[in-house]
Design a protein around this nucleic acid. Structure first.
Lengths: 235, 235
DNA sequence: TTACTAACATGATAAATGTCATGTTTTTTT
DNA sequence: AAAAAAACATGACATTTATCATGTTAGTAA
């Protein structure tokens, strides 16, 4: 176990826009006592597909990828997460094993709320129940949209959409318009659902066209409007 | 409006394995009074992507496809439904418009439960809440598995998987092993996520190999084991 | 029945994308 | 710093899949 400052739920900044934003004082102190916090170095795994969940993960800070390993071992990234997001609740609710794995793409502090505590909150606090249901509903919508995209859109459109998503979700540097997240080309390919080489090639093309700039892992969005056009959104 | 026998919830056979299987007598009679039932002829639409939901649809009998229209107008079938299934609850829960459309692929009786009635049930009956949450969780898992399939598996594997799913979900005739559902080749393609011609071609191939038999719309599964192998499941 | 339309089928071809090979650059480890 | 490993890049090519064209069959309406 690494040394680090374990955060308390009471002072957790991430909590304010999480499903736990409306807990009572009592619920909050209970939660703070019962949760455990762990530090994960970039690349480490939080949980693995196929295992039974021991609790609910809650990201205090950092960034996480949620992915499946396809039948040929290739990783498919299903979605990304950041501070305030909860992980593993789908498996807890359906009473199944995890249907996906989660790894940290940046050093992160992630708390584990024992499953009994989560189940108890679900029955005792209707606001949590509502928020979790809405979360499931939103993720289902997103997943279904992604299905249609994957089935119908060419790689370049999905890549453009992915870049816009990264900009939107993790933010960007206002000065040089570079994305506020570093992901490898392989990871970009695994979000888009294509071969790494294809992703690299299309990114290079975009750079040649002046739509983006690439400097190592740093990706600058030069022309958002061109990306939106490429992504073929809104039609 | 067509003439037909409007079913009552009390006598609804589909209810027994639906989310409404554990209602109290009172809840059941209330529901029966407040719901409306409509008859849909094959091809008719129950609701459309982008519209605000007026209530929860509940299939008394028949079969339904849930799909999105991609940016080029091509239909992507997200999932199928049958008697006892509920539709449109995702939009009701997230408070958004429908993210998909639903049309009937066989003459069907579908009831509409006004949204207030559904919302009231959700707050008053915790069993319903739990069941709806589990439903969302299961559909999310299925959708995410489909994402990985679409991103990584070739068309033939997805087609084999689709045939097995149709057999499993809608059943088959024990005598001649023909699927208990008729879907057009185009619809199969729209489930698989491929061009209609590609689906037709691969089905013809499977027929030549003696894995299935095709007689117009009738599809017979001759070798399930060969399909399972083709689908590349379990590895 | 005939005419018409939609669905099915198949060939020819093009386009998109994946795979393999190889070299370079960057990052990490020793 | 040197060595090793991982990530990035790009060409050549193979494969998969879509598209277009055209014909047949089956189902539906006149």
């Amino acid at each position: 176990m690494r040394k680090f400052q374990a955060p308390s739920c009471e002072s957790c900044k991430a909590r304010l826009d999480s499903v736990f934003c409306k807990l009572t004082e009592q619920e909050l102190t209970d939660l703070s006592i019962q949760k455990h916090c762990n530090f994960f170095v970039k690349g480490e795994t939080i949980f693995n597909e196929g295992n039974f969940p021991s609790g609910l993960y809650c990201i205090n800070n950092g960034r996480v990828k949620i992915y499946q390993n396809g039948s040929d071992g290739k990783e498919q990234i299903l979605r990304l997460a950041k501070e305030g997001d909860i992980l593993g609740y789908r498996a807890l609710i359906s009473g199944e094993t995890y249907s996906a794995s989660a790894s940290v793409i940046e050093d992160s502090k992630v708390c584990l709320i024992p499953k009994e505590v989560f189940y108890h909150l679900l029955t005792s606090n209707s606001d949590i129940t509502t928020k979790v249901m809405k979360l499931l509903a939103t993720e289902l919508r997103d997943a279904e949209n992604k299905i249609t995209d994957l089935a119908q859109k060419p790689v370049i459109e999905r890549l453009a959409e992915t870049l816009l998503m990264l900009k939107e979700y993790y933010g960007y540097n206002k000065e040089d318009t570079s994305l506020n997240i570093t992901v490898s080309r392989e990871e970009i390919a695994n979000i888009v659902g294509t071969a790494t080489e294809t992703a690299i090639r299309l990114l290079s093309d975009m750079k040649k066209q002046g739509i983006i700039d690439l400097d190592g892992k740093k990706i600058k969005i030069l022309k958002s409007d061109a990306l939106i056009k490429l992504a073929n959104l809104y039609d």
